[in-house]
């Protein structure tokens, strides 16, 4: 009895998913042929004929990928020009940041305490990377690079953009025409220009806006530029959340005697944040990917650090592709994990 059911369920599954009609059968057959053709070649390249040792000569004659380039250069790719002996600091920073991200994904509900915790974490990371106290050597931000820089730019801009975005979102749905117009203008203006132009502004124009006695670090300028950029996108997402809250709640709150800002802070904002979390996470993913652009203005985040490590080394220059794949894998893991998290949140609510 049991024996009869299982094969029939299995064949049924096969029939529905692989051989439903003529087109489906054709696709399945094509797939089998193509994978018989390509899969061995791809696997050979990726694994079986690949070189994993840091041996440029072996890489040159090998028919597979040269993962040795990662073995040889991973320290520069991950940490850029940060002094070699001090690289435990960026390593620690990456660990702390990843841990904090995981914790915040699990405890999102407690967001006001989270915000404070993040502020402390960011400050700690910043001070640790910079050093210059308690026997830690001073490392200028021009020498920061790689993964910690990518993470700091991403998280720093999110942290900075959030308050601005909340203001802009309330501004755009405000009753006051002037405030509404100004918020709308800002949001739409920023959303229609590419991030590159914002980075150019940060690199070339920001220094000219300060009194000439002061100069601002390029890292801080770029961080500010990304923050202003991201705020417009987050504001637009949050506005969607604001609109989703029924007017009855606001009237109820007002009749309880809550002041307008109290209504906004205690009633509207928590709900809007909850409702828009998946879209917010999507914006976070976008900005995580787009920080790779800062290489255009001379900061060596992951992509820039890879170029830095390979361009000056003729032995390893032919193996850029493997380096790109390595970085792509890092980005992919981060983005995929985050998007899965937002999907789960969507399914839960």
């Amino acid at each position: 009895m049991n024996n009869a059911v299982i094969p029939s369920a299995f064949t049924n599954w096969l029939r529905v998913n692989l051989f439903a009609d003529k087109a489906s059968i054709l696709i399945t057959l094509l797939f089998c042929v193509a994978s018989a053709y390509c899969l061995p070649a791809v696997l050979d390249w990726l694994l079986f004929k690949a070189v994993f040792r840091a041996d440029a000569e072996a890489c040159r004659v090998a028919q597979g990928a040269c993962w040795g380039v990662v073995t040889e250069k991973y320290r520069v790719i991950l940490f850029g020009r940060y002094p070699y002996q001090e690289q435990w600091r960026p390593m620690l920073v990456v660990g702390i940041l990843l841990l904090s991200i995981i914790v915040s994904c699990r405890r999102f509900a407690d967001y006001s305490r989270l915000a404070l915790a993040w502020l402390l974490v960011m400050l700690f990371c910043f001070v640790l990377l910079r050093g210059g106290f308690a026997g830690l050597a001073l490392v200028e931000s021009s020498r920061w690079g790689g993964l910690p820089l990518t993470l700091l730019l991403t998280i720093g801009s999110i942290a900075g953009a959030f308050p601005l975005a909340i203001l802009l979102a309330f501004g755009r749905s405000s009753q006051l025409p002037v405030i509404r117009a100004l918020s709308t203008l800002y949001i739409e203006l920023i959303r229609s220009i590419p991030l590159v132009s914002m980075l150019f502004l940060a690199a070339f124009i920001f220094p000219l806006l300060l009194p000439s006695r002061y100069s601002m670090d390029v890292f801080i300028r770029v961080l500010l530029g990304i923050t202003f950029f991201l705020a417009a996108y987050l504001a637009e997402v949050l506005r969607g959340g604001l609109q989703s809250i029924p007017a009855g709640q606001l009237e109820a709150a007002a009749s309880l005697g809550l002041r307008p800002w109290q209504v906004r802070w205690h009633i509207i904002l928590p709900q809007a944040l909850r409702a828009t979390l998946p879209s917010l996470i999507n914006s976070f993913i976008s900005i995580f990917k787009e920080t790779s652009l800062v290489t255009v203005v001379g900061l060596y985040e992951l992509t820039g650090a890879l170029t830095l490590s390979l361009s000056g080394d003729p032995n390893w220059r032919p193996f850029y592709l493997e380096g790109y794949l390595f970085i792509a894998a890092i980005y992919w893991c981060g983005c995929f994990a985050l998007s899965r998290h937002s999907q789960q949140w969507l399914n839960k609510t």
Partner: peptide, 18 residues
């Protein structure tokens, strides 16, 4: 305000006497 902001960002920025 600008001056205070600048003081706050002293950690990273350095005054340059033009």
């Amino acid at each position: 305000i600008v001056r205070w902001m600048l003081v706050a960002s002293m950690l990273t920025s350095m005054p340059v006497l033009a």
